[in-house]
Simulated scan of single mutants.
Amino acid sequence: MAPLICWRCFPRAWLCRGARRGPGRHYRAALCAELKEPLAVGEVAPRPVLPHEVRVDVHFCGVNFADILVCHGQYQEKPHLPFTPGMEFSGTVLEIGTDVSTVKEGDRVIGVSHFNAMAEECITDQKTLWQIPEKLPLREAATLPVTYGTAILALEHRAHTQPGETVLVTAAAGATGLAVIDVATNVLRAKGFWKTPRPLVSFLMSSW
């Protein structure tokens, strides 16, 4: 779906988790200290989880268009500097708040965060966190909340796509465009027509 790299190779299209760290210790995070400037990796002090929150050991984090916009000050939400970008992630639960009942420590999860997931750990509300099956790799799972969520919202809830219909994707070189192709053809059984670089088209066709 998108390039995958290790944390020490950051910053490119993905952030890969390194060694496991527990709550209470400083952790590394990508920091936007100045808009339109490269991100820096720094040490961040963890904060306590609130009763409804969950601390997650982040393994993989997706990089979305919104992350680019927010780091340029062009997103509708403008976090105070410095901040950590990153909206969707996968990982394992490190700690839960006193009122959390949906997950427990050690669970494999995917989630949506409020621009703080490009880090070794993040805290999010239990309502934006979901358990995933053991057989689903964390790498692939990281794109489900935002990337595939956007594709499903567009195709099913907005376009009401039906089997056999033709879906035109005018920008199929990014993560969301590729997710739209995947959902349209393999889930909704529609016919796909898209514009994307020729080498990628050849790869997709050979994969299917």
Rank of each mutant, 00 (worst) to 15 (best):
170 T>D: 05
19 A>Y: 03
41 V>A: 11
87 M>H: 10
178 L>M: 04
132 I>A: 02
32 C>Y: 01
53 E>Q: 15
121 E>G: 03
100 V>R: 12
3 P>I: 05
61 C>G: 04
130 W>A: 07
136 L>F: 13
137 P>R: 11
155 L>E: 03
30 A>E: 05
199 P>R: 08
81 L>V: 02
139 R>H: 04
53 E>F: 06
90 S>Q: 04
57 D>I: 04
140 E>C: 12
95 E>P: 13
9 C>P: 03
9 C>V: 04
13 A>S: 12
161 T>I: 15
131 Q>V: 00
10 F>S: 08
20 R>Q: 11
56 V>P: 02
137 P>V: 02
53 E>G: 03
38 P>Y: 00
56 V>I: 10
22 G>K: 08
59 H>F: 03
118 M>C: 09
156 E>Q: 14
190 A>E: 12
84 T>V: 14
188 L>W: 06
63 V>T: 14
8 R>W: 11
182 D>Y: 10
124 T>E: 05
32 C>M: 00
205 M>P: 02
6 C>W: 10
98 T>M: 05
41 V>N: 04
18 G>P: 08
186 N>E: 14
174 G>L: 04
119 A>F: 07
98 T>Y: 05
21 R>A: 06
53 E>K: 06
66 A>M: 05
190 A>V: 13
181 I>K: 08
60 F>T: 02
141 A>L: 05
49 V>T: 09
145 P>H: 03
21 R>V: 09
81 L>K: 08
47 R>F: 01
103 V>N: 12
116 N>C: 12
83 F>K: 07
117 A>W: 00
25 R>D: 13
206 S>W: 05
3 P>W: 03
148 Y>P: 08
51 P>G: 01
196 T>G: 14
136 L>Q: 05
22 G>M: 06
112 V>Y: 04
195 K>T: 14
113 S>F: 04
195 K>A: 15
153 L>H: 13
76 Q>V: 01
119 A>Y: 08
24 G>W: 11
87 M>Y: 10
157 H>D: 02
56 V>S: 08
200 L>K: 15
18 G>C: 15
6 C>P: 05
30 A>D: 07
66 A>W: 01
99 D>T: 12
76 Q>M: 00
106 G>R: 12
174 G>V: 01
159 A>K: 14
28 R>L: 07
68 I>S: 12
189 R>V: 02
172 A>I: 12
60 F>Q: 02
24 G>N: 08
11 P>A: 03
195 K>H: 13
39 L>Y: 07
62 G>H: 00
207 S>I: 01
151 A>N: 12
94 L>E: 11
143 T>D: 00
93 V>P: 06
169 V>I: 15
169 V>T: 15
163 P>E: 08
52 H>S: 11
96 I>D: 03
5 I>F: 05
192 G>C: 15
9 C>L: 10
20 R>S: 14
128 T>D: 11
99 D>V: 04
142 A>N: 01
135 K>L: 09
107 D>R: 03
88 E>L: 05
